[in-house]
Design a protein around this nucleic acid. Structure first.
Length: 432
RNA sequence: UCCUCGGUAGCUCAAUGGUAGAGCAUGCGGCUGUUAACCGCAGGGUUGUAGGUUCGAGUCCUACCCGGGGAGCCA
């Protein structure tokens, strides 16, 4: 039997007879001519059937095809400017592998709710396909960068005995009669990993039971969390900017065509993302907000509008560092210059995409952490293993967490986070 | 939890308080280079639910249900 050719490689078979398999993406028929656009996951190929050149029964079967039916087609390949993709196939034989009737996603507009209800089918569409390819490349870029930098992947558990950061936004589940929670960060485990491997990271799904209904939130999202022994705040910022700019560079290299032609992204906005990134202290940011007419009070965390205003004047991501300790997690190191502040840093994406990274330097001091755990009213028993890291050779260290979907959303320039993940989980969406 | 908008054909949407409609999809017919093809015909409805006002309610009122967008919180 003739081997199957993937459409992305069809150009290598110019002038030959080839066999392709895929799904009917579009169909246009006339009395003596029919065009079938075939989709196989790697590309689109226009197949032409001409009545008279093939027998009438075969031509009838081509005309009777329906959207998204799965077929096997053989035909001769030839270059043709009129065909999308530059190559066209002259049909010789057709075999239907799986029929499709009344495919729900028609070639006209649909609402997001309807499309999300059919997410399992929507993924076949051009734009969604492009977004998943982009996501794939971002994941590969993340792993390759950390690998090159000497990081070891140390997977953090998904079932956890308590909150990493003590908020009340955990999904609770039964664990053989005990309570367990779905992880909202692998952070604390990475601190243990940093003491074992020096440079470590985890990359997996995390869960937040926040009842958020915004374009920037999912209840299940993917986060990459590197942690580095002996790193201070400046080291972390330097690592973050190299990390982010290398991801952008990789995406521009491998997905430029999809970004430009399918996602219609303004490429120049991504080309501007080069290290070093601008740095603003929290104090300076508050002053900027006040000067800009925002009634923002020192001590709070920034809202979406504040973040947009701050990042607006820069063409690349913006670091805001040294937030008040009150608004950050209990394990953040205090600023030795000002006890009200923490050695924390957020990275804000341009164009109003907001926070894509949160991180900073962790406290190495056992007494301080004990005090913080009490202050945040966290159950000390649950943190004994974590405190051991300070009892047995404590060390300065820092790290950060990058939200994968926020990064993909920003790179793709799309309006909503939910299209940056194959099957989004949101407050009102658990299916498909 | 709060603010705001919405729920009418399979989908996207129309419809001064007065016979519920269009485009797409589907079925049938036409067309030899289509690019979300085009042209003609046809079928398709308990207007989210319950009550109320009215001669008459998709439209006005009340309650409830469901969802979109945003806020807070965060990545």
């Amino acid at each position: 039997m003739q081997p199957q050719v993937w459409i992305e490689e069809i150009g290598r078979h110019d002038g030959e007879t080839a066999l392709v398999r895929g799904w009917v993406y579009h169909l246009r028929t006339m009395k003596k001519l029919a065009f079938v656009v075939l989709r196989d996951g790697t590309g689109l190929l226009q197949v032409v059937a001409v009545k008279g050149e093939i027998d009438d029964e075969l031509f009838e079967r081509v005309c009777d095809l329906t959207q998204e039916s799965c077929v096997e087609i053989t035909g001769t390949v030839r270059e043709d400017r009129r065909a999308p993709g530059g190559y066209e196939m002259q049909l010789q034989s057709l075999k239907v592998i799986g029929e499709s009737h009344d495919y729900p996603i028609t070639p006209k507009e649909h609402g997001t709710t309807f499309l999300m209800d059919h997410r399992h089918l929507w993924l076949r569409s051009r734009k969604q396909h492009a977004l998943m390819k982009l996501r794939h490349t971002v994941v590969a870029a993340i792993r390759d960068f950390l690998d090159r930098e000497g990081f070891t992947l140390v997977d953090a558990p998904i079932f956890t005995p308590s909150a990493c950061e003590g908020t009340s936004t955990l999904f609770e589940t039964d664990y053989f009669g005990d309570k367990a929670y779905l992880t909202q960060s692998g952070q604390l485990y990475m601190e243990a990993a940093a003491a074992a491997f020096g440079k470590a990271y985890c990359f997996g799904p995390t869960f937040r039971a926040e009842k958020s209904k915004t374009r920037r939130h999912l209840t299940e999202f993917w986060m990459v969390e590197p942690e580095v022994a002996f790193a201070d705040l400046d080291d972390i910022m330097e690592l973050e900017e190299r990390f982010v700019s290398s991801i952008v560079e990789r995406v521009l290299e491998e997905r430029r065509d999809l970004l430009e032609n399918v996602l219609e992204r303004d490429i120049s906005r991504l080309e501007a993302v080069q290290a070093p990134f601008p740095r603003l202290s929290y104090d300076e940011a508050v002053k900027k907000l006040n000067d800009g007419g925002f009634a923002f009070e020192w001590g709070g965390d920034f809202g979406a509008a504040d973040e947009t205003f701050l990042s607006e004047e820069y063409d690349r991501p913006l670091f805001v560092h040294r937030y008040p300790a009150e608004v950050k997690a209990f394990y953040m190191e205090r600023d030795p210059q000002d006890a009200r502040l923490s050695l924390s840093v957020d990275l804000l994406a341009p164009e109003g995409y907001g926070e894509i990274i949160g991180g900073g330097q962790r406290s190495a001091d056992l007494d301080y952490l004990l005090e913080q755990i009490e202050r945040h009213q966290l159950p000390q028993e649950a943190f004994q293993w974590y405190l051991d890291l300070r009892r047995y050779g404590t060390f300065p260290h820092g790290g950060f967490g990058l939200g994968l979907e926020r990064m993909v959303t920003y790179l793709a320039g799309i309006a909503h986070l939910r299209e940056a993940i194959p099957f989004p989980r949101q407050i009102h969406r658990l299916a498909p």
